[in-house]
Write a protein that binds this DNA or RNA. Structure first.
Lengths: 126, 126
DNA sequence: CTCGGCCTTCAACATATGTTGAAGTCAAGC
DNA sequence: GCTTGACTTCAACATATGTTGAAGGCCGAG
């Protein structure tokens, strides 16, 4: 019978799959974006979700999330995430992106509508 | 008659107004977020839009724009910007934020709807 | 006229996000 | 067995975004 190997990808494999440098893959592992097992000779082996996590992380960075924040969101992902696991992560990321955009819009709207432009109270954090 | 002085704020004034450190105000000046004139004794003097620019920049950074990108957007602002000048800047920033969020949503939607989630392994035989 | 406070520049440091290079290990092919 | 290529770690470098500290200038109050 076939035993499904979950951790079959090397650093180079994941890097190629995700479109980043191998050094970036190691960096993301150090920072909790991806996890790896080790072979007997200490080489990293990633599962099939690794490239996916990295691709998602790259897009999430573009909306202002830090690697730390993305790692925190990914912390809710089980090994071998299923579609609904990804769905929850997606919802979370999208909500965060929209909240930040909403904060921007709100701040700009207040500013532009203020009688005295630029002399608004400090609501930047809201 | 009263001559309106346009550049009356010191670094400390702007820092307090914008809620950032004086060092940050200098940093933003170096990177084109704000402009300053100089007194005879070489001190910076900012106009009233300076704190505003910085506050906007801080919110824009939260949606993933770099200081360079924000400075580029602000490059379209005249000295003493009027409400419609700010309106154009606001539209530009919001469009950029929404484009990035849309890219995130699109990527996640594709990923989650894909028959094979992120190159998920072939589990059909199990 | 000195003192305190805010200003100046410049360099060093700090954190985030990576890349590059040196030196060494391991497995596969000739 | 030796070569080759991809892997390992670690340190240094690079860029973005700031902060901190030293050394000094300018001005208003006492």
């Amino acid at each position: 019978m076939t035993v499904t190997q979950t951790h079959t990808r090397t650093v180079g494999d994941v890097a190629a799959e995700a479109g980043v440098a191998p050094s970036a893959v190691r960096f993301y592992e150090q920072h909790g974006i991806v996890r790896a097992e080790r072979t007997r000779s200490d080489q990293r082996r990633f599962d099939e979700s690794a490239a996916c996590r990295i691709r998602v992380a790259k897009v999430a960075q573009r909306v202002g999330l830090t690697v730390r924040e993305i790692a925190d969101v990914f912390a809710g992902l089980p090994a071998d995430p299923q579609p609904d696991d990804w769905g929850r992560v997606a919802d979370h990321l999208i909500a965060e992106a929209e909240a930040r955009t909403a904060a921007l819009k709100s701040y700009l709207a207040d500013m532009c509508s203020g009688a005295r432009l630029c002399e608004l109270p400090d609501r930047a954090g809201r």
